[in-house]
Write a protein that binds this DNA or RNA. Structure first.
Length: 852
RNA sequence: GCCCGCUUGGCGGAACCGGUAGACGCAUCGGACUUAAAAUCCGAAGGCCCAUGGCCGUGGGGGUUCGAGUCCCCCAGCGGGCACCA
């Protein structure tokens, strides 16, 4: 028996794949293609279990597709710009570039031990000069197309990271990386006009039928389309009317006040002359965006003394400034209808404003219906509303908008929650924005032939903030026409880098343009994208926008970058804490008689919740250690076997041991039979023994089920199927007269089914079975329909829906025979207990139900 | 608060379109091999009971159906997303 040495076998096949360039994609457009991509990693320095899971899942798809005859593109790269590199620079005095490329080298070596079917010839890092150059070129294209603009605006300022954050990067009022409470600051920023595509991005979600519903819903919510109307209210003694946005124009006759955002221009104008109002505005600003403040903050208002006029009745409506009105949604002003909006009601009660119900709930009495502490937001018919009386809500909306439009007092309008994407970051380690400014502030884009604008390397990280601003020379330059200018010192949000890398992989060597049209037209869109759900909004929405922008600027001919998306669950592990509340590493505890003890002190340890592996909870397992001890196949198998890929996977010692045992058992199984099988290429055409027929049937049903299972990411079931097949092969008597033929087919199929999941073992097995080529390049087995049909079936027999027995019959037995056979069963007769049979339901090959 | 998802043995999880609930594995128990252990192999196993049989059983309650883990309604618990969004 040949010994199976994991380390040797795995490095051997990895070397062979590399030497033969097995996984390099061919730009052969005559072939059907399949682009499989996992979200590229940030080069933090070490791979973690999340990476192992992510890349294993993608690799199964890539390898299976390759075997199925597709020209597969499966590349890998590095999301290489970002703050951690600068932090390392500050803490350890190492240059971000050095740190980043060193980490890339380490992680590349680690990834290579996983035996992934990656095309390393296409590797890229977003900090590579050529990538920076092409990204800047794209920026200029977008600028020329009017999709990039600069404006002064209130921004989310992260005081710890000293940079601006996009709305998507503010989580619960805190910076997504630093966790610091975000401040409001007014700055000049560059924006991508993502809202230009808001409607298209929303509408196209319906076409993304291979995306998880959850992600589609999250994107819909994020875009946040709401249809309503923009109304104009005349204000006494003011020339300009006040515009408000509402989704409930039908409740216009219930309006009892208007409210302005504290930072509304009208509020600001008034505050300039009214110190008390200015104080109120300042008070609101202080509450800021902190979430607790918001939650606790009462509805606060300040009567501006202005009087607005109802656009139809002309009734006077007081105008307040109010803390709950947001400047960056709608028009920054609302009309309040207290009877049908809870916030407006709270506000009205506090300031003694009128509450007039205008929507009458079904079956309510108009004479007695009143709103007390709870606004009525349900359905009903309008009343107290002049020409709207009697209409349903939707009809009333249409009617009132129509009437207001005639009067020039408003029109229907759609608003979005989605904001334009602010991409300026006051950081060093990012892609420089290719813009210069003249002394008078005029914007001059960097000329194409001056690209790339590269980062200076002699920078000082000893002070907080952006070192580019402090650099003695970098920011100053003389334009080709001799004018003096200064460079933009902000760099781009790193989400820009990841918004087009998938397209760049199609032609990573092209130094003249961002993408080669022929290559992207062939490869894009990505057929299967795999990654974590945490990017459901940020990265995935930006990439969808960017693809549209690249289409608008003539780079691609598609709108949607990712035809299929799979979001995998997290890798979790138990947590342990000692009596002092310190988290303990899994290595630092041991189990004894069902109790957990600290290895060093022997003290009892509390077992905490199962949580996502994280450094802060000390519950990580280093994949390198696992691969060293058990091999890549073992780690991969464990990643696939226990949980469905979209759910969380709990890492357990027992689980990895189980995978280890199975691999060894598999090898023994194949090795012990390899010399007994018929010569290669023999197919068991018509085995005669029952056992051989049964095995052959199982081989084909397994192929069929596996093929479908892999398509649907049912990898845990695929592992179960393979185990069932190998169990059956194990149980098969090698002395059977048809043994050599059937075993040849069964083992060949087994090796090929294993190949996407545990590729090294599969190659070793394939070679041991006498095949000269690689299993990675062998065709995917096909199920023969003839062998998918069972010869006999077991049919359950029920009496009144309760199982009373079963029948073993030939497949396709007729109903009458089944009915009779079922009624003949002793158990059925006993259950009937002499009662008359009312009806017998027969579902051929499935079930018989006797009803009494 | 609003929206979405989930809930099946001791555990992870199977169960296509409503048709034998618990595949496959982990842990457990028993046995074989061994001086012994590990490894390996064989076997048992949802719970309960008057045990070749019966009753109960997919978070709880109701409904539709010959038949419900699966479909419908209500409730609970857990997880996630969004949130003064007008």
């Amino acid at each position: 028996m040949q010994r199976y040495s994991v380390r040797e076998v795995e490095t051997k096949w990895q070397r062979i794949w590399e030497e033969r360039r097995t996984f390099e994609a061919r730009d052969d457009t005559s072939q059907p293609k399949c682009y499989v991509l996992e979200m590229f990693p940030y080069p933090s320095g070490r791979i973690h279990m999340g990476h192992v899971r992510n890349y294993t899942l993608g690799d199964v798809v890539a390898r299976a597709r390759r075997m199925q005859g597709f020209n597969v593109l499966h590349p890998m790269g590095w999301d290489a710009f970002g703050l951690p590199a600068e932090n390392a620079a500050m803490q350890r005095g190492i240059h971000p570039k050095t740190w980043t490329y060193r980490n890339i080298a380490e992680m590349r070596a680690q990834l290579k031990t996983m035996g992934l079917s990656l095309d390393w010839s296409r590797e890229l890092a977003t900090c590579d000069p050529v990538y920076v150059q092409q990204q800047q070129s794209l920026f200029l294209d977008l600028y020329e197309a009017g999709l990039v603009y600069r404006k002064e605006s209130w921004v989310n300022w992260d005081p710890v990271d000293q940079t601006v954050l996009a709305n998507e990067q503010v989580v619960d009022g805190r910076g997504w990386r630093s966790g610091a409470i975000v401040e409001r600051k007014k700055l000049s920023q560059w924006f991508f006009a993502i809202t230009r595509y808001a409607d298209d991005l929303l509408a196209a979600i319906d076409q993304l039928d291979r995306w998880p519903d959850k992600v589609r819903l999250m994107q819909q919510n994020w875009i946040g389309k709401s249809t309503g109307a923009r109304l104009r209210f005349a204000i006494d003694d003011q020339d300009e009317p006040l515009e408000v946005f509402t989704t409930r124009p039908d409740t216009l006759f219930g309006a009892s006040f208007l409210a302005l955002a504290p930072d509304h221009p009208l509020t600001s104008t008034l505050a300039a002359e009214r110190p008390a109002l200015a104080a109120f505005v300042a008070e609101c600003a202080k509450l800021g965006t902190s979430e607790e403040a918001l939650a606790k903050a009462d509805k606060q208002g300040f009567d501006t003394g202005l009087m607005a006029r109802h656009p139809i009745t002309g009734a006077p409506l007081p105008v307040y400034a109010a803390n709950f009105v947001l400047m960056d949604y709608g028009t920054g002003a609302i009309f309040g209808c207290p009877a049908h909006d809870q916030r407006d009601l709270d506000f009205a009660r506090k300031y003694g404003l009128q509450v007039t119900p205008v929507v009458l709930p079904p079956d309510a009495d108009p004479a007695s219906f009143a709103v007390a502490d709870e606004a009525y937001v349900g359905p009903g018919r309008l009343y107290n509303s002049d020409f709207l009386d009697g209409l349903e809500i939707e009809a009333a909306k249409a009617r009132v908008v129509e009437r207001l439009a005639e009067a020039g007092a408003g029109q229907g309008e759609t608003t979005y929650r989605l904001r334009d994407w602010g991409i300026s970051r006051q950081r060093y380690w990012g892609c420089p924005i290719p813009i210069t400014y003249l002394d008078d502030g005029t914007v001059v884009p960097v000329a194409r032939d001056e690209l790339p604008v590269l980062l200076p390397e002699d920078v000082d990280f000893s002070l907080p903030g952006n070192p580019l601003e402090r650099h003695p020379t970098w920011r100053h330059l003389t334009l080709p026409d001799g004018r003096q200018a200064r460079r933009e010192t902000d760099t781009m949000d790193t989400f820009v880098d990841s918004s087009w890398y998938f397209a760049r992989f199609c032609s990573p060597g092209d130094d003249r343009q961002p993408v080669s049209r022929r290559a992207v037209d062939y490869w894009m869109p990505v057929d299967q994208y795999v990654g974590g759900v945490e990017h459901a909004v940020l990265h995935l929405l930006y990439s969808r926008f960017f693809t549209r922008a690249m289409r608008a600027t003539g780079h691609v001919s598609i709108d949607e970058p990712f035809a299929g998306l799979f979001t995998q669950g997290m890798v979790t592990h138990r947590t342990f804490q000692n009596a002092d509340g310190q988290w303990l590493e899994p290595d630092a505890v041991r189990e004894e008689d069902g109790r957990w003890l600290a290895v060093d002190t022997g003290a009892t340890v509390t077992v905490g919740r199962v949580e996502k592996m994280s450094k802060s909870k000390h519950n990580t397992i280093d994949p390198q250690v696992i691969i060293q001890n058990y091999g890549a196949d073992c780690a991969r198998l464990f990643m696939l076997s226990d949980s469905p890929p979209d759910r969380d996977l709990e890492w357990t010692e027992a689980g990895i041991d189980g995978a280890w045992r199975y691999l060894n058992r598999l090898w023994r199984l194949i090795d012990e039979r390899a010399d007994l099988v018929a010569p290669a290429n023999g197919v068991a055409a018509g085995p005669t023994s029952t056992a051989a027929q049964a095995l052959k049937r199982q081989v084909h049903t397994t192929v069929d089920a596996m093929t479908h299972g892999l398509d649907r990411f049912h990898f845990n079931k695929a592992v179960a199927l393979v185990r069932e097949l190998s169990n059956a092969i194990e149980a098969f008597d090698v002395a059977d007269p048809d043994g050599p033929l059937v075993l040849r087919e069964a083992l060949d199929v087994l090796a090929r089914l294993l190949a996407p999941m545990v590729p090294h073992l599969a190659e070793e097995a394939w070679a041991r079975l006498g095949h000269p080529g690689l299993v990675a390049e062998a065709g995917w087995p096909k199920a023969d329909p003839v062998w998918l049909v069972a010869s006999t079936v077991t049919i359950a027999v029920q009496v009144n829906g309760k199982r009373r027995g079963e029948l073993e019959v030939a497949a396709g037995s007729d109903e009458a025979g089944l009915r009779e056979a079922a009624l003949d069963l002793d158990n059925v007769q006993r259950a009937l207990d002499g009662r008359a049979v009312r009806k017998v339901i027969v579902v051929p090959d499935r079930i018989v139900n006797v009803v009494v």
